[in-house]
Amino acid sequence: MQTMKLTLKIWRQSGPNDKGRLETYPVEANEHMSFLEMLDVLNESLINDRKTPVAFEHDCREGICGTCNMVINGQPHGPMGGTTTCQLHMRHFKDGDTIVIEPFRARAFPVIRDLVVDREAFDRIIQAGGYVSVNAGQAQDANAIPIEKETASRAFDAAACIGCGACVAACPNASAMLFVSAKISHLALLPQGKVEAKKRVQAMVNQMDLEGFGMCSNVTACEAECPKGISVENIARMNREYLSSTLGSEVQG
């Protein structure tokens, strides 16, 4: 098994009030490890040296929960397209590489510690309207409304968002529009979600603005880095929904 010697430069910050800095660590890895397992090895050795391990978030390690988040050599979730950090494997790095690891950076994602940031702004945006107002027990039969296969499939494409925040981290403007538009699209495409679509788009955009995210310049870095391949088509759809809702309907946000 090929062993590789790597140099890691990792952002260390003990808390929100600490200024933070990049610190350098050597680590030995091999090509079968996942990126996070490589960090586990580092942490294990830090603990054995009675030092504070690097705080980073992770959970499912299957690329679906959206918990893991770090910027690896300037790219959220690292160099491989369509891949979360936990699904990134060390065979994509070479012996002798230097890897710079930083937290997702945005004013709306304050650092809690090291690579851990607070992404509750996303929750608050969903709370503003990212749902269908249906109580348990109210639903009609699931097959009562046929939905075109293609439409359902597009709704799924948007719904595949894992809420990791890579779009914000990648965007030069720290805009959250890909995340917000994915939810708006997912629900606006389906007949079940259309009922409240007008109100939803106004409320969610409003909350997004309040959270201090930047504004989209259509750079499409979000789409390029999104581990789930969410398309910027959704942003166009959100714009459309927003314009027709604010200017073309009587609904007040």
Binding site: V132, A136, Q140, A142, N143, P146, K149, S153, A159, H186
Partner: peptide, 22 residues
């Protein structure tokens, strides 16, 4: 059966056939 009804009403995009049904 009610779970599927509930999930569809919430907007869960289950797989569908060309006829639009689940």
């Amino acid at each position: 059966a009610s779970i599927i009804d509930q999930a569809v009403a919430q907007g869960v995009p289950f797989a569908r056939e060309y006829g639009g049904l689940l």
